[in-house]
Design a protein around this nucleic acid. Structure first.
Length: 286
DNA sequence: CGAATTTGACCCTA
DNA sequence: TAGGGTCAAATTCG
């Protein structure tokens, strides 16, 4: 959204884009079928890992489709005012539905604020997710702030390896609504420079149980119950001996949560990683 | 006991 | 001056 000026984007022809969207949808449906099959795996650890992977694939596909759709809407819309888009985002963004206009203002101001010390643009990605922690990285919370016109506080995380590896990656997590499960807006700031520096067995919390081969995906690092509902839900399900199913959603489901484009490039990257993983040793683990 | 989280204060920007 | 972002001491947790 705030990644590049629209003028720099060169959208594919609409019919071609529709075809791509259709293919992505099919992929998401197939992933869903695969997930149902994976539910039958008896071993909890394996099943959890596989389900998480499939869910990531599904989410990536859905997000990509919605991203394309969102672009189509942008190009078909004559408005070039970024504030209009920000307003649309804020209108459904703040859970109580209050203060949409002010929310838009805050967002605009924030976007300006998020620059490097020398005024350079920071790489920012916004992702809607039910599992804000489930992105495969180790995060350390360094702050929480009640945001004006937002029902829920915003949590501030930085890469857990920011000190050791000088990783500049940061993440802002804000709960969007009070639905079950709640949806979080995750804003990623800066890319990880440490991602290749910590193998699975280097993770401080080996919560990856038996699924060590995929533990980068399953690195549910600790987080406060108040700010990471996804985590407590996962833990709850584990405690109850249930399968850990990271939820995936259809575009319509996600669209009902927010009108924001559902960007998840990180998950896209993860999917690419997984594809290469599967191609190297199909089956991954054992 | 070390690591992670919480939380109020402080700083910076618009 | 208001509001968002960060720091750091205190607290909690494993």
């Amino acid at each position: 959204m705030a990644m590049r000026p629209k003028s720099e984007m060169s959208p594919p022809p609409s019919d071609q884009r529709d075809a791509v969207i259709e293919e992505l949808r099919k992929g998401a449906q197939l992933a869903d079928c695969l997930r149902q099959q994976l539910e039958l795996i008896p071993e909890l650890g394996r099943r959890s890992a596989a389900l998480a992977n499939v869910s990531n694939i599904s989410t990536a596909l859905v997000s990509s489709a919605s991203m394309l759709e969102s672009n189509r809407e942008q190009y078909s819309c004559s408005s070039s005012d970024p504030g209009v888009a920000a307003y649309a985002a804020g209108a459904s963004g703040s859970g109580g539905g209050t203060g949409a206009r002010n929310g838009a203002i805050a967002r605009t101001r924030k976007a300006k604020h998020r620059r490097g010390t020398h005024g350079e643009e920071l790489p920012i990605r916004e992702v809607l997710t039910e599992t804000p922690e489930n992105d495969g990285f180790h995060w350390r919370k360094y702050g929480e702030k009640k945001i004006l016109n937002a029902v829920f506080p915003r949590s501030y995380y930085r890469c857990g390896y920011s000190d050791e590896h000088r990783c500049p990656a940061k993440k802002l997590v804000q709960q969007q609504n009070n639905s079950d499960p709640p949806v979080f807006m995750v804003t990623m700031i800066n890319d990880h420079t440490c991602s290749s520096l910590f193998p699975a067995d280097d993770q401080p919390h080996s919560s990856s149980n038996s699924a060590t081969a995929n533990s980068q995906v399953l690195d549910f690092t600790k987080a406060s119950p108040s700010s990471a509902a996804g985590v407590w839900r996962l833990k709850k399900e584990e405690d109850a001996g249930m399968s850990v199913t990271v939820p995936s959603y259809t575009h319509d489901e996600l669209a009902s949560y927010s009108s924001l484009p559902l960007l998840s490039p990180k998950e896209w990257e993860m999917e690419m990683e997984m594809k290469s993983l599967f191609s190297h040793h199909s089956g991954g683990g054992t």
